[in-house]
Each structure stands twice: as structure tokens, then as C-alpha cells.
Design a binder for these strands. Sequence first.
DNA 1: ATGAAAGCGCTAACAC
DNA 2: GTGTTAGCGCTTTCAT
Lengths: 348, 348
Amino acid sequence: MTADPLGPPLTRRATLSVTLNDVASLANVSPQTVSRAIRNPELVSERTVTRVQWAISTTGYVPNLAASNLASNRSKTIAAIIPTISASVFADALHGLDAVLTPHGYQLFIGATDYSIDREEELIRAFMGRRPDGLFIVGTKHTPAATLLLRKSRIPIVEAWNWTDEPIDNLVGFSNSDAIEAIVEYVVSKGYKHPTFAASLQPGDSRALDRQESFARTVARLLPGEPPRVVDSGTGVIDMDAGVRLLDIALKRHPETDVLMFASDIFAAGALLECRRRGISVPGDLAITGFGDFEISRHLLPTLTTVAVPNVEIGTRAGELLIARMSGIGEESEMVDLGFSVVARESA
Amino acid sequence: MTADPLGPPLTRRATLSVTLNDVASLANVSPQTVSRAIRNPELVSERTVTRVQWAISTTGYVPNLAASNLASNRSKTIAAIIPTISASVFADALHGLDAVLTPHGYQLFIGATDYSIDREEELIRAFMGRRPDGLFIVGTKHTPAATLLLRKSRIPIVEAWNWTDEPIDNLVGFSNSDAIEAIVEYVVSKGYKHPTFAASLQPGDSRALDRQESFARTVARLLPGEPPRVVDSGTGVIDMDAGVRLLDIALKRHPETDVLMFASDIFAAGALLECRRRGISVPGDLAITGFGDFEISRHLLPTLTTVAVPNVEIGTRAGELLIARMSGIGEESEMVDLGFSVVARESA
DNA sequence: ATGAAAGCGCTAACAC
DNA sequence: GTGTTAGCGCTTTCAT
């Protein structure tokens, strides 16, 4: 045994946990060999590997990744920054991201900005302290300081969801503007003449703003003379109750509306169910469209016309890009447009 | 300047990033003082703090938390292990957890087990390597090895969702069995005589199993002679399509059913909408109940009778327990029963 | 195939 | 109020 039976003089509280050295002395090899046996067993003789594995399970050794991180300058960690965890679209993307990263041994740090770019900056700063090997972030609008932090971070970054022509590094998303344009074109082609857009403008949610502006532009182009009617619940909350409220506002303020176009399927579902309750026929009295193609949309009665967007794929493509960049394959920043599709159903 | 103008001889690649030493030499103080100025500014003179802050922003210093972790043996990190990210109930709990932890400077590691306890064990092992200061985990059934790992981890742990009499450390949840019992009691009190339970048994999902067993027990108690009818979609998937499938199976196999009791509001919503589509009157021809009290349940037509469970609160209470334990307040393990409530609406 | 030495960037302990 | 010293547990580099 190479271990000093008295143990080293502890000048400072130790971690109290089993270390590489403990495993090494039990296995009668150097710490270095244990390290190798764990990470590159092919460089170590079979006998030694067996002995080390025995020592590991005997001692219950769990490697300290902070030490590994510090020594190797790689954390095997990915930071993910999203507006909120409890919105299924982002949860789906995280799910996709996690599914791709886990098999490669990367672990996910998650933080929610609550749609505030100041909070986002704080989060980025805090996360950078963990020296992640890659970063996933929803959105392309950041504070100047945040953008700077990201630019000089030297790690691969994927901005997601929005489209922009000047991403910081990689971009995976689709054009919210084009998607809204497409569904407006669709309803106009169906003969609707008086569309109203219904959203809940969260300060800081640039995606919602994009959609609203795109609506106005497209109406101006396709229905000259028609005002760009927009209603806003003002709270920023995206739920079915807000959909009902938006329906009320639209009905009262813009009774001429023949198609009510919601910025989310959640709103649309709430409004649609409320219409049935009130005896408003859809699409007879009023047509309705959504955004997102949530599962409920094809189950509603009538089924909901909406825009399908690639939530999970955003996560998986982002994960693949990160993996590729972190393993040195591919040096170029990529811009991946995952597109969208108008899903024509019964409600419009 | 105390800095050596030639710099130290680099025997090994440096991180290339700004370190505490860089800030210290720019501010003309010792690294220790910089550290103090960041973490306990009240121990440092105001002038020094100002100078250090200036040096930090000049250099763009971002502390390396791996090094901090290693030196201090505290990671300011919490590990959260959930069955899947894209199930709103768990996303809601994470949201609650995150909301409580963030203000205290803790960051969240997240991993999904996909309902496999073997995968869960792997995740625990990997996460323990990061030496989290606390751990949140959904479920109380783990592999023996995982249980052992958790028991000897010396960090506060919160098991959540399920109820058990022998938690590893803390427990925050409610009794799935009691909840099912309560809603069966409710429908029986309403005069229904032929209940059928509809679930999708995911191998490894002990919560679903609990519910099913509780259903059988309660039926045996309240409706003697009545068989415990259960239908199972067999896929483990929880979505509205599965709800429709379960409806089909129940209708065909157990036409005597007067109330179809779903293990999730998602199933119930799919089935309810399908009933309307087919002209089956609810609750006239068939009553329906759900589980979870999702937002959609109070918007459906008819509104859905269900059981409300405290998703977000599970996360926030867990967060509070962890914070308390990590700051040394409270040494005792706690068991928090957050309860549930039957929400009587129109569908049953 | 294995080991020895050095050091990653930070904080704890103790001095002054 | 501030500095000095000695590590935290691992990986890298270089020897053998």
C-alpha cells in the first residue's frame, strides 16, 4: 500500500468524500492511472482496469466534476436560457435539446428570463461562471452587455425561435413574420375580408411583436383600405382565460370582424370553446385561427386552423449544432430555417 | 503594481480568460481582497470595493464557479430529476422550484428519466459528480443503488409527488391513492354505479399504478359486487389521442359504464371532445372525470369534474425546504402533504 | 502501460 | 482591513 496509514495532516476540512487518491491507493496504482482507467480504458491494461473498477465500486467513488472541469477546462455542461419553463413550446424544445445532449454526456443548466432581457443578462453572466461548453438561448434580442458577453465567450451558441439576419453565432428557428403572413394570406384566399389580430403583448416578447407587425403589413398589402385591427389583453399572460377576454374585446370593439386570428392556439382554444358556449357558430358567425398547432387544435370542435411550428426540432437541431461544434466538427456558424406550415382545418 | 510585467512562465495552457489574479493586479490588491470585495463587500473598505469593481468591469471578469466550487465545497447548484420535461405538471413544479431558488443564487440542473428508474440511477450518479447543494426528485421509488447514493449524499433531498411513509429525507406531495378514492367516492355519491378507470400504464410510472390500485380498492368497498373495470391504452403516452382510444376501448369492452374516470385531464379532454363529435351526451349518456385540473378543464363544454393537485406548490415548497436546510435552518426531515381537492363540475 | 510533478482558479485559515 | 499560504480534486505534460 502506498497510502500513509496515518493519513495526511489535514490542514483544512476535506470534502469528506472519496477521491481519486483513495481509489488509487486501494487499487495500488497512481491516481493518474485511475483517471485513465475511467476515461480511456483502452490505454490501460485489462487487469488494471478491472482492479480500478473494483476499487471504485468498493469505495463508492463519484468523480468530482468541478475539479475535472477546473483541470481540463471543459465542463460537459450546456446552459439553456428560455423565457419560461412552463410554456409547452419551450418545454418541448428543451426536451429535444436534452434528448440530443444526454447521450453525449452533457448536462443541462436551465434558467428562465420571464421575458425580461435584463434578467436574461443576469442569467447569462451567472451561467458563464460555470464555463458551459455551449449555450442555447431563446430569442435574438439581448441587452448590449449580454450580446458582448456572448460574443466574446468563445463557446458555440445557438439562438433559437426568432429569425434574424445577424445572429451572434448559430441560429435555429423560423420566421414569425412569414408565418403570420402565410396564415393571413390563407384566410384572405378563403374570402375573409375583416380580420382582427388578437394577442397578449408581453413587454419583452419580441416574437409577439413580430407577429403583430407582420399582421399589419400583410393586411395593408392584401386588403387595401382595411384597417389593421389588433386587440391586446395587456397582461402578457398566455392562457385560455385570456383567449376569452380577447374574444370579448374583439366582439365589442370590432363587431365587423369575420375572422379572429389569435397569436396562440391557447387563446384560440379558449375563445372557440367560449363561442360554442355562447352559441356563436364557428366558422359560420366568426372564423377563428390560432398559432402553434398544439395538440388540442385537432381535437377541438370545430378543429382549429393554425400554423404548425417545429418546437421539438428547434431543440434537437440546436443540440446537434452544439455537439458538432463542441467536437470540433464544423467551424462555421449556421443558420437553420426550420420553416412552418399553415394547417387548414375547420375553424376558418 | 505588484504584477510581474513579464507574467508567470506558462507551463500549461491557461484558460485564456480573466482570473481573480488579473483583477487583483489591476486593482493593486491581493486576490483574496478581490474575492472578499465580491462576496462580502462589507468586510472591505469602500474605496477598495470601488477600485475592485472598476477593475472587474474593465477586465470583463467572470468568476469561475468551478474553481469556487472546488475551493469552498459548495456549488450553489440544485439538481432536479423529473420523469419528462414536456409534461406540464412537472414543468409547473420546476417553475415553482426555479422561482424560489433563483433569488438565492442557486442554479438548476435538470435531467429527465423518461420514467425509467435505471435511467434515474444513471442521472443521479452523473449529477452527484457536480456536488449539488440539494436535490429535487420526482417519485419515491428508486433502484437500491440510487437510494443508497442519495442516502449517503449528505445533502438535503426532496422527493416529490408521491406519498410514502419512508422518504429518504424530505417529502413534498400528496396521496394519489387518496385522491382517486375521493373522486370515486364523489361519483358514487352522485349515484353512478358502473365506473370504469382509464389510464395509460407507463412501465415505471408508480403514480399511475397507485391510482389504478386505489380505484380497484375503493370500488370494492363502495360498490360491492361491481368488478373493478380498468382500461389501458398500453402505450404509456399521455395525450388526447390516447384519450380517444381509451374511450373506444371502454365503450366496446364495458358498454355498461356510466362514468368513465380518466387518470389525466388530457385523456378526459380528448374523450370529451370526441363524445361531442359523435353525439354522445356528457354527462347524459356517459359521465366523465379527469385528474389534474388542467386549465382546459374549466373551459371544456361541459366543464370537467376532476381532482386539483398542487403542481406549482410542490416546486415552491420543495425549494423552500431546500433553502432552509442549505442555510442550516432546520435540521429535521419534513414530510409535507399538500393535499388535493375534488373539483365538481358539469361532466359528472 | 504507468507514474511524478505541476497547476487549473478559487477560498479557508491564519497572520498582521 | 488586507495579505500570505496552502490546498480543494482533478487532468495535463512529460518521463520512464
